[in-house]
């Protein structure tokens, strides 16, 4: 999808364009308006005036997976919620990233039982893990900075 499929391989322009596109993608990752538990409260706080997620270009919480770039899985994922989370992730257009926010989304946290998915990476690929229970809004912002660093190194060929 997008400009990377139209470009032939080995073109000189790709090296500089790649950087420009990565810069743009990293500086405006639209999160998906999607909260599962208490970590979502901290995610909302990160969107508030005090922490101001808009400083990282991520203030536009899109209400539909088709318009969002990054899925912040904020909260525990139960067995019942798992197919929904997976489907929403599949509906997001490439390139897409996932931040597992908090202990429950990352590893299951204190809920080591039959009802919970032991980490959302069992379902969907996770790019950044943010520990905390729940993480401070600043910890989430640090996760977004880490995600930005990761996006900088990405190649067009990763999405072919």
């Amino acid at each position: 999808m997008g400009i990377e499929t139209a470009l032939p391989e080995g073109m000189v322009v790709t090296t500089t364009l790649e950087k420009l596109v990565d810069w743009g993608r990293g500086r405006s990752p639209f999160p998906f308006l999607f909260g599962l538990a208490c970590c979502a409260i901290e995610m909302m706080a990160a969107g508030g005036p005090r922490h101001d997620i808009a400083r990282f270009g991520a203030e536009v919480f899109r209400g539909t997976p088709r318009q969002s770039d990054v899925m912040i899985v904020s909260g525990r994922v139960s067995q019942k919620m798992a197919p929904v989370v997976k489907r929403l992730h599949q509906q997001m257009p490439d390139p897409k990233w996932v931040i597992a926010m908090g202990a429950c989304a990352s590893s299951g946290g204190p809920f080591e039982n039959y009802a919970m998915i032991q980490g959302v990476d069992k379902l969907i690929p996770v790019d950044v893990y943010v520990p905390g229970c729940p993480p401070r809004p600043e910890a989430l912002l640090y996760g977004i900075i880490e995600l930005y660093e990761k996006i900088q190194g990405e190649k067009f060929s990763d999405y072919r």
Partner: peptide
Amino acid sequence: EFALAGYSRQGL
């Protein structure tokens, strides 16, 4: 210290 985010489960 709260800024602990990482890229892998093993690294954390």
